[in-house]
Protein backbone atom coordinates (compact mmCIF):
# COMPACT_ATOMS: atom_id res chain seq x y z
CA UNK A 1 0.00 0.00 0.00
CA UNK A 2 1.37 3.39 -0.92
CA UNK A 3 1.77 5.97 1.78
CA UNK A 4 -0.04 9.26 1.42
CA UNK A 5 1.81 12.52 1.13
CA UNK A 6 0.89 13.53 4.65
CA UNK A 7 2.12 10.20 6.03
CA UNK A 8 5.42 10.73 4.28
CA UNK A 9 5.79 14.24 5.63
CA UNK A 10 4.95 13.03 9.10
CA UNK A 11 7.24 10.03 8.95
CA UNK A 12 10.18 11.94 7.61
CA UNK A 13 9.59 15.19 9.41
CA UNK A 14 10.44 16.90 6.18
CA UNK A 15 9.51 19.73 3.95
CA UNK A 16 9.39 22.75 6.22
CA UNK A 17 11.07 25.97 5.26
CA UNK A 18 10.95 29.33 7.00
CA UNK A 19 8.90 32.04 5.34
CA UNK A 20 7.65 35.45 6.36
CA UNK A 21 3.90 35.68 6.04
CA UNK A 22 1.90 38.67 7.23
CA UNK A 23 4.93 39.93 9.11
CA UNK A 24 5.36 36.70 11.05
CA UNK A 25 7.85 33.90 10.56
CA UNK A 26 6.17 30.62 9.71
CA UNK A 27 7.36 27.21 8.70
CA UNK A 28 5.62 25.73 5.69
CA UNK A 29 6.22 23.05 3.11
CA UNK A 30 7.06 24.48 -0.34
CA UNK A 31 3.68 23.36 -1.61
CA UNK A 32 1.82 24.95 1.29
CA UNK A 33 3.92 28.09 0.94
CA UNK A 34 2.86 28.40 -2.63
CA UNK A 35 -0.78 27.83 -1.77
CA UNK A 36 -0.53 30.42 1.01
CA UNK A 37 0.72 32.99 -1.46
CA UNK A 38 4.17 33.45 0.04
CA UNK A 39 6.12 35.90 -2.09
CA UNK A 40 9.25 34.62 -3.83
CA UNK A 41 12.54 35.97 -2.51
CA UNK A 42 14.50 36.26 -5.75
CA UNK A 43 12.18 35.68 -8.66
CA UNK A 44 9.53 38.22 -9.55
CA UNK A 45 5.93 37.03 -9.27
CA UNK A 46 5.47 36.78 -13.02
CA UNK A 47 8.75 34.86 -13.29
CA UNK A 48 7.64 32.43 -10.63
CA UNK A 49 4.33 31.92 -12.41
CA UNK A 50 6.06 31.33 -15.75
CA UNK A 51 8.46 28.86 -14.14
CA UNK A 52 5.62 26.97 -12.46
CA UNK A 53 3.64 26.83 -15.70
CA UNK A 54 6.63 25.74 -17.78
CA UNK A 55 7.72 23.16 -15.25
CA UNK A 56 4.22 21.73 -15.04
CA UNK A 57 3.91 21.44 -18.82
CA UNK A 58 7.16 19.50 -18.98
CA UNK A 59 6.73 17.48 -15.76
CA UNK A 60 3.05 17.30 -14.83
CA UNK A 61 2.51 17.72 -11.09
CA UNK A 62 5.68 19.73 -10.53
CA UNK A 63 3.75 22.98 -10.01
CA UNK A 64 1.93 21.46 -7.08
CA UNK A 65 5.14 19.87 -5.85
CA UNK A 66 6.65 23.33 -5.64
CA UNK A 67 9.11 23.69 -8.52
CA UNK A 68 8.97 27.48 -8.47
CA UNK A 69 9.39 27.62 -4.68
CA UNK A 70 12.29 25.18 -4.96
CA UNK A 71 14.14 27.20 -7.60
CA UNK A 72 13.47 30.49 -5.84
CA UNK A 73 14.74 29.07 -2.55
CA UNK A 74 17.91 27.72 -4.17
CA UNK A 75 18.61 31.04 -5.85
CA UNK A 76 18.27 32.77 -2.48
CA UNK A 77 20.80 30.62 -0.60
CA UNK A 78 24.59 30.65 -0.91
CA UNK A 79 26.36 28.66 -3.62
CA UNK A 80 27.66 26.31 -0.92
CA UNK A 81 24.08 25.41 -0.01
CA UNK A 82 22.70 25.44 -3.54
CA UNK A 83 21.29 22.14 -4.83
CA UNK A 84 20.32 23.14 -8.36
CA UNK A 85 21.56 20.77 -11.02
CA UNK A 86 22.64 23.72 -13.18
CA UNK A 87 25.88 23.78 -11.19
CA UNK A 88 26.92 20.60 -13.04
CA UNK A 89 26.26 22.04 -16.47
CA UNK A 90 29.09 24.50 -17.00
CA UNK A 91 27.21 27.61 -15.84
CA UNK A 92 29.11 29.67 -13.28
CA UNK A 93 27.21 30.94 -10.23
CA UNK A 94 25.22 33.02 -9.43
CA UNK A 95 22.44 31.46 -11.49
CA UNK A 96 19.68 34.05 -11.18
CA UNK A 97 20.40 35.74 -14.50
CA UNK A 98 20.27 32.38 -16.27
CA UNK A 99 16.75 31.72 -15.01
CA UNK A 100 15.62 35.33 -15.36
CA UNK A 101 16.69 35.70 -18.98
CA UNK A 102 15.34 32.28 -19.91
CA UNK A 103 11.93 32.89 -18.36
CA UNK A 104 11.77 36.35 -19.93
CA UNK A 105 12.52 34.86 -23.33
CA UNK A 106 9.83 32.22 -22.90
CA UNK A 107 7.26 34.93 -22.30
CA UNK A 108 8.56 37.12 -25.11
CA UNK A 109 8.24 34.28 -27.59
CA UNK A 110 4.78 33.39 -26.28
CA UNK A 111 3.60 36.99 -26.67
CA UNK A 112 5.13 37.30 -30.11
CA UNK A 113 3.45 34.11 -31.27
CA UNK A 114 0.11 34.31 -29.51
CA UNK A 115 -0.20 37.66 -27.76
CA UNK A 116 -0.24 35.99 -24.32
CA UNK A 117 2.27 35.09 -21.62
CA UNK A 118 3.34 31.47 -21.55
CA UNK A 119 1.18 30.60 -18.55
CA UNK A 120 -1.96 31.47 -20.50
CA UNK A 121 -1.23 29.49 -23.67
CA UNK A 122 -3.41 26.65 -24.80
CA UNK A 123 -2.10 23.12 -24.43
CA UNK A 124 -1.22 22.91 -28.11
CA UNK A 125 0.51 26.28 -28.27
CA UNK A 126 2.49 25.65 -25.10
CA UNK A 127 3.64 22.25 -26.32
CA UNK A 128 4.66 23.65 -29.69
CA UNK A 129 6.74 26.34 -28.00
CA UNK A 130 8.41 23.81 -25.70
CA UNK A 131 9.16 21.48 -28.59
CA UNK A 132 10.83 24.31 -30.49
CA UNK A 133 12.78 25.35 -27.41
CA UNK A 134 13.97 21.80 -26.72
CA UNK A 135 15.14 21.46 -30.32
CA UNK A 136 16.61 24.98 -30.36
CA UNK A 137 14.36 26.27 -33.12
CA UNK A 138 13.02 29.42 -31.49
CA UNK A 139 14.21 32.22 -33.75
CA UNK A 140 13.58 35.21 -31.50
CA UNK A 141 15.05 33.62 -28.37
CA UNK A 142 17.37 35.93 -26.40
CA UNK A 143 18.03 33.86 -23.28
CA UNK A 144 20.64 31.21 -22.51
CA UNK A 145 20.99 28.33 -24.98
CA UNK A 146 17.45 27.07 -25.52
CA UNK A 147 18.22 23.37 -25.24
CA UNK A 148 20.18 23.93 -22.04
CA UNK A 149 17.40 26.04 -20.55
CA UNK A 150 14.85 23.33 -21.35
CA UNK A 151 17.13 20.67 -19.84
CA UNK A 152 17.63 22.69 -16.66
CA UNK A 153 13.95 23.43 -16.10
CA UNK A 154 13.03 19.83 -16.85
CA UNK A 155 15.55 18.59 -14.30
CA UNK A 156 14.42 21.08 -11.65
CA UNK A 157 10.85 19.89 -12.16
CA UNK A 158 11.91 16.25 -12.02
CA UNK A 159 13.87 16.92 -8.83
CA UNK A 160 10.76 18.10 -6.97
CA UNK A 161 8.36 15.66 -8.59
CA UNK A 162 10.44 12.49 -8.46
CA UNK A 163 13.56 13.19 -6.38
CA UNK A 164 12.05 13.59 -2.92
CA UNK A 165 10.72 10.96 -0.55
CA UNK A 166 7.26 11.88 -1.76
CA UNK A 167 8.42 11.49 -5.34
CA UNK A 168 9.79 8.02 -4.67
CA UNK A 169 6.41 7.06 -3.25
CA UNK A 170 4.77 8.28 -6.46
CA UNK A 171 6.94 5.81 -8.36
CA UNK A 172 6.64 3.06 -5.77
CA UNK A 173 10.43 3.01 -5.34
CA UNK A 174 11.79 2.17 -1.88
CA UNK A 175 13.63 5.21 -0.53
CA UNK A 176 15.89 3.07 1.67
CA UNK A 177 17.79 5.98 3.16
CA UNK A 178 20.89 5.70 5.28
CA UNK A 179 20.18 9.20 6.53
CA UNK A 180 16.81 10.79 5.81
CA UNK A 181 16.94 14.30 4.40
CA UNK A 182 16.32 16.82 7.18
CA UNK A 183 14.18 18.66 4.64
CA UNK A 184 13.38 18.08 1.01
CA UNK A 185 15.77 20.66 -0.32
CA UNK A 186 17.62 22.62 2.30
Amino acid sequence: MKATRREILYAGGIGLLSFTLGGAKVELSPRDAREAGVKPRVLLSNEEETLAALGDRIVPGSRESGVSVYVDHQLAVSFEECMLMIQYLGVAPPFTSFYRSGLSSVNSVARARHGQPFAELTDANAEALIEDMASEKLEDWEGPPQGLFYFVIRNDACDVQYGTQEGFVRLNVPYAAHILPPSEWG
Binding site: R57, P60, A134, Y150, F151, C158, Y162
Partner: peptide, 26 residues
Protein backbone atom coordinates in the same frame (compact mmCIF):
# COMPACT_ATOMS: atom_id res chain seq x y z
CA UNK B 1 19.94 4.46 -10.69
CA UNK B 2 17.66 6.85 -8.89
CA UNK B 3 14.68 8.62 -10.48
CA UNK B 4 16.45 12.01 -10.60
CA UNK B 5 20.02 13.30 -10.68
CA UNK B 6 22.34 13.87 -13.60
CA UNK B 7 22.89 10.12 -14.02
CA UNK B 8 19.33 9.23 -13.07
CA UNK B 9 16.34 7.88 -14.93
CA UNK B 10 14.62 11.15 -15.82
CA UNK B 11 17.57 12.90 -17.54
CA UNK B 12 18.35 9.80 -19.61
CA UNK B 13 15.46 10.73 -21.94
CA UNK B 14 15.22 14.52 -21.95
CA UNK B 15 12.98 14.38 -25.01
CA UNK B 16 10.11 12.81 -23.03
CA UNK B 17 7.77 15.18 -21.22
CA UNK B 18 4.16 15.68 -20.24
CA UNK B 19 1.94 12.67 -19.69
CA UNK B 20 4.43 10.43 -21.47
CA UNK B 21 7.07 11.25 -18.87
CA UNK B 22 4.95 9.86 -16.04
CA UNK B 23 4.46 6.60 -17.94
CA UNK B 24 8.18 6.47 -18.74
CA UNK B 25 9.17 7.01 -15.12
CA UNK B 26 6.76 4.41 -13.80
Amino acid sequence: VKPNGLLGIAPSRPDIRGAALKRFME
